[in-house]
């Protein structure tokens, strides 16, 4: 079973397909869960403590908006942990404020720089695109360690 970073990190479709084909999707939910389940912290809404932006400094300089560093403290360790990645290029749902936009750019950059197996594709908008989308993801995931042969 490989750890596959999904972009956008909140994607239902990618999370489902990765776990359906036998791998572990790494996304926002797991990072948030880790913070929610850590006892002794109570800093709503996301249990982000002053330690998190410090972790984010590893990925973004101090003059970068603190929102980017805060987000990178969630995504950065997951990118380092990932064995592979799937990026959806036309993900409108990843749209957000400048902090989200810069974090998204940085996440994609870091994934490409790590030189792990990476699949980039667009969301399907027809049945035929859906068939291509699912077939491409299945083929990609089958090639990863522990994947089910296509």
């Amino acid at each position: 079973m490989a750890k596959v970073f999904i972009y956008p990190g909140t994607s239902l479709i990618l999370s489902d397909l990765v776990s359906r084909f036998g791998h572990r999707p790494l996304g926002s939910a797991l990072a948030v869960r880790e913070r929610v389940q850590t006892p002794g912290l109570d800093s709503p809404p996301l249990q982000i403590t002053p330690e998190d932006p410090k972790k984010g400094l590893r990925y973004a300089a101090v003059e970068v908006p603190s929102g980017v560093r805060g987000r990178m403290s969630l995504y950065g360790p997951q990118i380092e942990e990932a064995d592979a990645g799937i990026i959806v290029r036309d993900a409108d749902l990843a749209f957000g404020c400048m902090g989200c936009a810069r974090t998204n750019e940085l996440v994609r950059f870091l994934l490409r720089r790590r030189e792990i197996p990476l699949l980039e594709l667009d969301y399907p908008h027809s049945d035929e695109e859906g068939i291509r989308f699912v077939a491409a993801i299945k083929e990609f995931l089958s090639g990863l360690p522990g994947g089910v042969p296509a």
């Binding site: 239902l12 479709i13 399907p124 908008h125 859906g130 068939i131 291509r132 077939a135």
Partner: peptide, 11 residues
């Protein structure tokens, strides 16, 4: 994403 899952179902 729920607008798109029908295409994923086809896939």
């Amino acid at each position: 994403e729920m607008r798109l899952v029908r295409y994923v179902s086809s896939g």
